[in-house]
Nucleic acid binder design. Sequence first.
DNA 1: CTCTTTATCTTTACATCGTAAAGATCCAAT
DNA 2: ATTGGATCTTTACGATGTAAAGATAAAGAG
Lengths: 241, 241
Amino acid sequence: MGKSEIRTATARGARTPKKASAPARPVPRPARVKAEAPYHHGALREALLQAAERVLERDGLAGLTLRAVAREAGVSHAAPTHHFGDLTGLLSELAAVGFRQFNAAMASSSNAATTPLEHALARPKAYVAYAQAHPGMYGIMFRTERLDYSRPSLHEAAEASFAGLANAVGMMRQEQIRGDALTLQQGAAIARAWSMVHGFTMLLLDGRLEDILGRLPEGTTPERLLEAMLMSPVTGKPPGP
Amino acid sequence: MGKSEIRTATARGARTPKKASAPARPVPRPARVKAEAPYHHGALREALLQAAERVLERDGLAGLTLRAVAREAGVSHAAPTHHFGDLTGLLSELAAVGFRQFNAAMASSSNAATTPLEHALARPKAYVAYAQAHPGMYGIMFRTERLDYSRPSLHEAAEASFAGLANAVGMMRQEQIRGDALTLQQGAAIARAWSMVHGFTMLLLDGRLEDILGRLPEGTTPERLLEAMLMSPVTGKPPGP
DNA sequence: CTCTTTATCTTTACATCGTAAAGATCCAAT
DNA sequence: ATTGGATCTTTACGATGTAAAGATAAAGAG
């Protein structure tokens, strides 16, 4: 790989000079999938985000660089700068995409639940399931230090995630949760639910629960362990005799 | 900063040729603190680890590079390679140091507890306190993907941390925990304790609990929230009327 | 319709980083 | 005393993030 920076798209020099075919369509970049790339991409921002997601799933967090994303999208390495400012910007927008996917998964799983027990377990299970299905995305959302929450898209998506969680905990406690004030018990319940499922997910993704899982009865899955975690008291023995 | 790679130590060319002063001491590098640096450092490995810890606390995880550590220690940028192999090696050894500090803090706080309630809360509080006092170290230990647990020092230190946790949970449940086998309830208790405190710590360090803390009664500290988390049942309302 | 402006994308450049390889220096065993 | 090996430095290379300047196409003004 001597020269690097290979353009995946076609050569740049010989290009249609004046729009030969396609007699004037209003849409900036219609259904063109395999023609030669024009100088102006037309929807580079979305294309870059999708390319970033592909790179992330394929090469992991370490492989997710600005230049790799540009390569994947078939544009010059400096093209992302114009749309995202810098790497933090790209990561932040990608994290926002992740939060939206995440929120959608949580909502649909919650809607599918019927019994109270299912309702109680649906969201935590969906939480872990999303992280296992998209470990790279989850890493972007919760492992990276380089996120800019002042970006509206990220702020809103993360906020919605938190609101959904708080709401679910409130429903489970059968009380209304006001947006602006919480009792210590309410706050503790929310923080406990979030901490538990988030901590479990991170430890699971990092392989740090293998020690426990390996010592459990044969064939115990992480899901089963999570269920058991959620359905027993926190500290000490049950107060019975 | 034109040339970079500034040597913090003195110039290299003019050096004592044959050990002029200090008439033959057995210790390789005695109490020399400010003399000119010899070609062979003598205790570079430990010096690099200490330098790395300083860089980490000063510049954060992003500033912790091999070259920055070498600079801080006053040696050439390639010197760390010989002792740690690569960046993963340095991070892994530094994480091992962190786990040892961490284990010591947990043990001492546990020993200082007297009442059963103190015993129950001492370790979680020490856990969070360590992470708040050394956020960089905690990040190295739990946020970095680039750790090599096949290194004996890291493996042992992390294992000891896990054993201490499992043991503490077992004590709280007033049962003996066997090393090789766990019931689902035991495993769930350990995973719950670890997930909860680890998740809480990560969310706290990432500032993601600000939303909750800000809505709590005036002046509620993270420690108080943690206490409340640990002392209430997990799901649903208490079974009373 | 033509000209100008502006947004988008490319090229070029530079400092920094991790890592490999070769050279310099010193300790230690023979 | 000499040689071998460990320790540290120098040099080099490819990759990355980012800035700046140039090229191109779309949009708007006249």
